[in-house]
């Protein structure tokens, strides 16, 4: 699904990622953990194609294709999804219109006709029920006036609607109370399929009580310094990041 090889990334001449290697297979859930400022969000942004990052070395292969030359929208059309740590408010654009535009642009990319309105609305309804979302959500403007929890739920809803092959969830747990966390995690679990993958970026082990990862990576100072099973997250929780610092 995703192969990152020896990825080096700089921002304004400062190297942030110093040789990342990551292999995510279809059906897997990976967790990337690590202290603040070690490059977790940078990694998410670089995979999604945000401007302003210099990839000085390495490659990102997504479904067999090197995506480094693709724009953010092209990567999305290829099946990538980024759940934002701080989702942006877009007043005046309803979630319905936003998602219909996104789905139709993705379909256009694949040479498909726009989704018929009844089919689109049925899909909205189905996903809303799946994620136990309120009815009024769809008519509201994208993220406008949403609470932190609502914004994150809306990210998961968009993910459900867009049905990506690979979803990267950047600090989706930050700012969530336990109920919102449970809803978000349940959504991720329900959307899990043998042919899609999820990369969860998180600071705390807490989210991993709800989303059980196949592989846990520890990102430290721009490198993945440790990888292991879900027990690694527990070890981290117990020993703290100081343990990694002393190990690396």
């Amino acid at each position: 699904m995703l192969s990152i090889r020896n990825l080096h990334v700089s921002i304004k001449g400062k190297e942030i990622l110093k040789g990342i290697n990551l292999e995510v297979n279809p059906g897997e859930v990976h967790a990337i953990m690590g202290p603040n400022g070690t490059g977790k969000s940078t990694l998410a942004y670089v995979i999604s194609g945000r401007d302003g990052y210099d990839v000085t070395d390495g490659e990102i292969i997504f479904k067999g294709k090197n995506i480094l030359d693709l724009s953010a929208e092209e990567r999305a059309c290829e099946g990538l999804f980024l759940g934002f740590q701080y989702p942006v408010e877009i007043p005046g654009v309803s979630i319905t219109n936003f998602l219909r535009t996104a789905i139709n642009e993705q379909r256009k990319y694949k040479g498909l006709d726009p989704v018929p309105a009844p089919e689109f609305l049925a899909r909205m309804e189905e996903k809303k029920q799946l994620l136990e979302l309120q009815d009024k959500l769809a008519s509201r403007s994208v993220n406008e006036g949403f609470s932190g929890g609502e914004k994150k739920k809306n990210e998961i809803f968009q993910m459900a609607m867009l049905e990506p092959s690979l979803a990267i969830l950047d600090e989706t747990d930050s700012g969530l109370d336990i109920d919102a966390l449970r809803i978000v995690a349940t959504g991720v679990n329900k959307l899990r399929r043998p042919d899609n993958s999820t990369v969860v970026i998180t600071h705390y082990q807490r989210l991993l009580e709800y989303i059980v990862p196949d592989v846990v990576h520890v990102l430290f100072d721009g490198r993945i310094v440790k990888s292991g099973g879900k027990e690694l997250a527990l070890l981290l929780e117990e020993k703290g990041y100081e343990w990694i610092r002393s190990e690396s």
Partner: peptide, 29 residues
Amino acid sequence: DPEALFYIRSRGISEANAKILLMYAFAAD
């Protein structure tokens, strides 16, 4: 807002349409 532009593009919406969407959102107020 470049942050908003990236957010919209990350959903698969082209840059040109993302800009129209944001301009429209600007006017929608």
